[in-house]
Amino acid sequence: MTNQAGGGRPPPPPPSQSYAGLLSELMTNTLDADYEVVASRRSAATGASPQGESGGDPRSGWSNRAGIVAAVTAFGVLVGVSAVKTAQDQPQATAERAQLIEQIEAGQARLDDLHGDLSALQADIGRRQQEQAGEASAASRRTDDLQHLAMSAGTAAVTGPGMVLNLDNARHAVPGAGGLILDSDVQALVNGLWVAGAEAIAIDGHRLTALTSIRFAGQAITVDYRSLTPPYVVEAIGNPDTLPSRLLETQGGQLWLGLRANYGITFETQTESTITLAGDAYNNLLWARPVGSR
């Protein structure tokens, strides 16, 4: 039905634009078609001769002028606002960039500071380690000093080569006859040993220190307030090659040679390669203090 009705009329020609490519249409039809349409309509209305754009157009009046001005003013506002916006955004972006650069530089400076701190701390660590090593060696040195002092003072056990002396009263000795060993004899012998170069001396196992007394109480000799019974054994650490001979050259040695010869008192010496002497445990100083301390 409709086919028949429409079939009588030829189909309208397709618009020429549809044959052209999109790009060529873009390039050719750049002007709004409305201008031509309105112009052709106006020329048809006013007559065959086309007029100027606003010459005899009855619609050209203040209202349309106002429309143009409004549109152009709006365009100007758009341009101005865009320019202002761009000008506003640019300093902001620049400021942000400068701020970022500033932050980066600050971070790098901080990193440099931290590196400096790190190297300083490492140097400090090395210095402290050296100090500690020095302190450790000083401490061990002090310990050695203390050891030496204790050995000299007689409070520390010592070992080394030396000589052993066996002393005994004469047989069948009676008091007053001179066959008994006196405290002064022992004192003379010990002094002779010190002179001969003995470094540590013990009598019957009692180490002699600066405070050790050798006295006579009753019938017995006391060393460090402890009574000893004959025979007495005196041990002395020193050079075993020179100690016996040098002892005999001292007054004490001569005395004892005389005692042996005149009264039959036993006086035997022999060298030992190893003698061990215990330290004197009773060496607490109750009153003496180092000078300079309280």
Partner: peptide, 25 residues
């Protein structure tokens, strides 16, 4: 807006400028 303005200027030179068309476009 730039396109519309240049279109209007061209229409003006072509002699077919129309206020209404320009404003609307």
């Amino acid at each position: 807006a730039l396109d519309a303005v240049f279109g209007g200027v061209r229409a003006h030179f072509d002699g077919i400028f129309d206020d209404k068309v320009f404003v609307i476009s």
